[in-house]
Amino acid sequence: MPPTRITLTSVGYLHQPTDADGYPTPPTADPIEDVRERLCDPAVARDIVDLHGRDPRVQAVVIATPGASKFLDNLTAHALLPAGPRRIAVGCAGGKHRGFGY
Rank of each mutant, 00 (worst) to 15 (best):
Y102V: 01
G94H: 02
Q59I: 14
S10G: 11
L72Q: 06
A68I: 04
V90F: 05
P85F: 14
F71S: 03
P27N: 13
P26H: 03
N74S: 12
P31H: 06
P17K: 10
V62M: 10
P85Y: 14
N74A: 09
S69R: 15
T18P: 04
D47I: 04
T7E: 13
P82I: 07
A45E: 13
G99M: 06
L80W: 03
L8W: 03
P82H: 06
H97V: 03
D50F: 12
S69W: 05
P27K: 07
Y23L: 15
I88R: 06
L14K: 13
Y102E: 13
L14C: 00
I6T: 05
S69F: 01
D30A: 08
D73G: 06
V44C: 00
A64W: 12
H15V: 10
V62C: 12
E37C: 01
V58D: 03
R57I: 01
P24E: 05
R86I: 01
T18W: 06
V44Y: 08
A79H: 10
V11D: 07
I88G: 01
G12M: 09
I48Q: 05
G12S: 14
D47S: 12
S69M: 13
D30M: 00
L8Y: 04
P3D: 12
K70C: 07
V90K: 01
A43E: 03
P2A: 11
I88D: 11
Y102H: 12
H97S: 02
F100W: 15
P3E: 13
R87F: 00
H97E: 01
E37Y: 10
R38C: 03
C92G: 13
K70Q: 15
E33P: 02
P2G: 01
A93P: 00
S69T: 15
I32A: 03
I6G: 07
A43F: 05
G84A: 04
R98V: 12
K70A: 15
G22I: 11
G99S: 08
K96F: 14
P56I: 04
G12Y: 09
V49N: 00
T28P: 02
G67L: 10
A45M: 10
D19P: 10
G84H: 04
T76C: 10
G101I: 05
Y23Q: 15
Y23W: 15
A93G: 07
R57K: 11
T65D: 01
R57W: 07
P85E: 14
T7K: 08
L72N: 05
G67V: 02
A45Q: 07
D47T: 13
A93Q: 00
R87K: 12
L39S: 06
L80F: 03
R5V: 14
D19A: 07
K96V: 13
C40E: 09
Y13L: 06
L80G: 00
D41H: 04
Y13M: 07
A29S: 12
P56T: 02
A45T: 14
A83K: 09
F100K: 11
D41N: 15
I88Q: 06
N74Y: 02
Q59G: 12
A79M: 09
A93I: 02
D47W: 04
N74Q: 15
P3M: 11
R98K: 08
G101S: 10
D73E: 15
L80P: 00
R36Y: 09
R86K: 10
N74D: 15
G22M: 01
P66H: 11
E33L: 15
